[in-house]
Structure formats: structure tokens, C-alpha cells
Lab assay of single mutants.
Amino acid sequence: TTEYTFTDDEEARRAIEELKKRGLTFRYEKHGTTWRVRVD
């Protein structure tokens, strides 16, 4: 499991789109302004 942290909404959304394109399994949660994206 790899975890990424983003504080920029645009950056987080781009990363999420990219992961979807690659067909990877991931989860994300947003805490205030911080996004945590975990890739299995």
C-alpha cells in the first residue's frame, strides 16, 4: 500500500483521475484541506 498526501485540490483530483485511468484500486479521504490517497 502506498499513501499519498495532497493539500491542493486540483493536484489531488488529477492524481485520482490518473489512478482511475490506470485501473488501480485506491481509496481516498479528505480531512479539511488535506487529501489522503491510498493505493493498494
Results as ranks from 00 to 15, higher is better:
Lys20Tyr: 10
Ala12Trp: 06
Leu19Gln: 00
Thr2Tyr: 14
Glu10His: 09
Tyr4Gln: 03
Thr25Gln: 10
Thr25Tyr: 11
Tyr28Thr: 08
Gly32Ala: 04
Gly32Val: 02
Arg22Phe: 06
Arg13Pro: 01
Lys21Asn: 08
Val39Met: 04
Arg38Lys: 11
Tyr28Met: 09
Trp35Arg: 02
His31Ile: 15
Phe6Ser: 00
Ala12Glu: 00
Thr5Lys: 05
Tyr4Arg: 03
Arg36Tyr: 15
Arg36Trp: 15
Glu29Cys: 14
Arg27Phe: 13
Glu29Asp: 07
Asp9Pro: 13
Tyr4Val: 04
Arg36Pro: 00
Asp9Gly: 08
Lys20Arg: 13
Leu24Trp: 07
Arg22Cys: 10
Glu29Ser: 12
Glu17Asp: 10
Lys30Leu: 06
Val37Glu: 01
Val37Thr: 00
Gly32Trp: 02
Val39Ser: 02
Glu11Arg: 06
Asp8Val: 05
Phe26Glu: 01
Leu19Asn: 01
Ala12Thr: 03
Arg14Met: 10
Glu18Phe: 12
Glu18Asp: 11
Leu19Arg: 01
Arg13Asn: 07
Ala15Arg: 04
Val39Thr: 03
Glu29Val: 11
Glu17Lys: 10
Gly32Leu: 04
Val39Phe: 05
Glu17Tyr: 11
Val39Trp: 04
Glu3Ile: 14
Thr1Asn: 07
Glu29Thr: 12
Ala12Lys: 02
Glu17Thr: 09
Arg22Trp: 08
Thr25Val: 11
Arg27Met: 11
Arg27Pro: 00
Ala12Asn: 01
Phe6Tyr: 10
Phe26Ala: 04
Asp40Tyr: 15
Val37Asp: 01
Glu3Val: 14
Gly23Asp: 03
Ala15Ile: 11
Thr34Ile: 14
Trp35Gln: 02
Arg36Phe: 15
Arg36His: 14
Tyr28Trp: 12
Arg13Lys: 11
Glu29Pro: 00
Leu19His: 01
Glu11His: 08
Thr2Ala: 08
His31Gly: 03
Asp9Leu: 09
Leu24Glu: 04
Arg22His: 07
Glu10Leu: 10
Trp35Ile: 12
Lys30Pro: 01
Asp9Arg: 09
Asp40Val: 14
Arg14His: 08
Ala15Cys: 15
Asp40Ser: 12
Trp35Leu: 04
Phe26Val: 15
Arg14Gln: 09
Glu29Lys: 07
Val39Ala: 03
Tyr4Gly: 00
Thr5Ile: 15
Arg13Ser: 06
Ala12Cys: 12
Ile16Gly: 02
Arg22Thr: 06
Thr34Asp: 04
Glu18Tyr: 13
Tyr4Trp: 13
Gly23Pro: 00
Glu3His: 07
Phe6Asn: 01
Arg13Glu: 08
Leu19Phe: 14
Thr25Ala: 09
Thr2Glu: 08
Gly23Val: 01
Lys30Ile: 09
Val37Gly: 00
Arg22Ser: 09
Val37Phe: 09
Leu24Tyr: 12
Arg13Thr: 08
Tyr28Leu: 12
Gly32Ile: 02
Glu11Tyr: 05
Thr34Phe: 12
Arg13Ala: 09
Glu3Gly: 03
Lys20Thr: 12
Leu24Gly: 03
Thr7Ala: 07
Glu17Pro: 01
Tyr4Cys: 15
Arg38His: 13
Val39Gln: 02
Thr2Phe: 13
Thr25Asn: 12
Glu17Met: 11
Arg13Ile: 11
Leu24Arg: 05
Lys21Met: 09
Ala15Glu: 03
Lys20Phe: 11
His31Leu: 13
Ala12Arg: 02
Leu19Ile: 06
Arg13Trp: 14
Gly32Ser: 03
Lys20Ser: 08
Glu10Tyr: 10
Thr34His: 07
Leu24Pro: 00
Asp8Gly: 05
Arg14Thr: 07
Thr33Gln: 11
Gly32Glu: 05
Gly23Ala: 03
Thr1Ala: 11
Tyr4Thr: 03
Gly32Thr: 02
Ala15Trp: 15
Lys30Tyr: 05
Arg36Gly: 02
Val37Met: 03
Lys21Tyr: 06
His31Gln: 12
Tyr4Ile: 06
Gly23Arg: 04
Lys30Asp: 01
Thr33Arg: 08
Thr33Asp: 14
Leu24Asn: 04
Lys20Ile: 14
Trp35Thr: 06
Arg22Ile: 06
Arg27Tyr: 14
Lys20Gln: 10
Ile16Ala: 02
Arg38Ile: 15
Lys30Gly: 01
Thr1Asp: 08
Arg13Gly: 05
Thr34Arg: 06
Trp35Val: 06
Lys30Val: 08
Thr7Leu: 08
Arg27Lys: 10
Glu10Asn: 12
Leu24Met: 09
Thr33His: 10
Arg22Asp: 04
Thr2Cys: 15
Phe6Val: 00
Ile16Val: 04
Ile16Gln: 01
Arg27Glu: 10
Tyr28Ala: 14
Ile16His: 01
Leu19Tyr: 06
Arg36Cys: 14
Phe26Gly: 01
Phe26Trp: 03
Gly32Asn: 04
Glu17Gly: 07
Leu19Glu: 00
Val37Arg: 01
Glu18Met: 12
Glu10Ala: 11
Thr2Ile: 14
Ile16Tyr: 02
Gly32His: 03
Arg36Glu: 05
Arg38Ser: 14
Arg38Asp: 04
Thr34Gly: 06
Glu3Gln: 06
Thr25Cys: 13
Arg22Lys: 10
Lys20Leu: 12
Asp40Gln: 12
Phe26Met: 04
Glu3Phe: 14
Lys30Trp: 04
Arg22Gln: 11
Glu10Gln: 09
Leu19Pro: 00
Arg14Phe: 07
Glu3Tyr: 14
Asp9Ala: 12
Trp35Ser: 03
Thr7Tyr: 14
Ile16Lys: 01
Asp9Asn: 07
Arg27Ala: 11
Thr33Met: 09
Trp35Phe: 04
His31Glu: 13
Arg14Val: 08
Glu17Phe: 10
Glu10Thr: 11
Ile16Asn: 03
Lys21Phe: 07
Gly32Lys: 03
Glu18Asn: 09
Glu29Leu: 07
Glu3Asp: 06
Asp8Trp: 03
Ala15Asn: 04
Glu11Leu: 08
Ile16Trp: 02
Ala15Met: 15
Ala12Pro: 01
Glu11Asn: 06
Trp35Pro: 00
Glu29Ile: 12
Asp9Met: 08
Ala12Val: 06
Glu17Ala: 13
Asp9Phe: 13
Glu10Ile: 10
Thr34Asn: 06
Glu11Gly: 06
Tyr28Asn: 01
Arg13His: 10
Lys30Glu: 02
Arg14Gly: 05
Lys20Cys: 14
Thr2Trp: 14
Thr25Ile: 12
Trp35Lys: 01
Arg14Pro: 01
Asp40Asn: 11
Ala15Tyr: 15
Gly32Asp: 05
Glu10Gly: 11
Thr1Ser: 11
Arg27Gly: 05
Glu10Pro: 03
Glu29Gly: 04
Thr34Glu: 11
His31Lys: 11
Asp8Tyr: 03
Arg22Tyr: 06
Glu3Pro: 02
His31Asp: 13
His31Trp: 09
Tyr4Leu: 09
Thr7His: 12
Ile16Thr: 02
Phe6Gln: 00
Arg14Asn: 09
Arg27Gln: 13
Thr25Asp: 06
Thr33Pro: 08
Gly23Asn: 05
Thr1Met: 12
Arg38Tyr: 15
Glu10Met: 10
Glu29Ala: 08
Val37His: 01
Thr7Asp: 10
Lys30Thr: 04
Val37Trp: 02
Glu18His: 09
Glu18Ile: 12
Ala12Gly: 04
Leu24Gln: 05
Thr5Asn: 05
Glu3Ala: 04
Leu24His: 06
Lys30Ser: 03
Thr5Val: 14
Arg38Met: 15
Val39His: 02
Glu10Phe: 10
Glu29Asn: 05
His31Tyr: 11
Arg38Leu: 15
Tyr4Glu: 02
Lys21Gly: 06
Glu11Lys: 07
Thr33Ala: 09
Thr2Arg: 13
Tyr4Pro: 01
Glu18Trp: 15
Arg36Thr: 14
Asp9Val: 10
Glu11Asp: 09
Asp40Trp: 15
Lys20Val: 11
Glu10Val: 10
Glu17Leu: 12
Thr7Trp: 09
Glu29Tyr: 14
Asp40Pro: 09
Thr33Phe: 09
Val37Gln: 00
Asp9His: 07
Glu11Pro: 03
Lys20His: 07
Glu18Thr: 09
Thr7Glu: 11
Tyr28Arg: 02
Val37Tyr: 00
Lys21Trp: 05
Leu19Thr: 00
Arg14Leu: 09
Phe6Asp: 00
Glu10Ser: 09
Tyr4Lys: 02
Thr2Pro: 04
Gly23Trp: 02
Gly23Lys: 05
Phe26Gln: 00
Lys30Asn: 04
Glu11Cys: 12
Glu3Asn: 05
Lys21Glu: 07
Lys20Trp: 08
Tyr4Met: 08
Lys30Met: 06
Thr1Cys: 15
Gly23Thr: 02
Leu19Val: 02
Arg22Val: 05
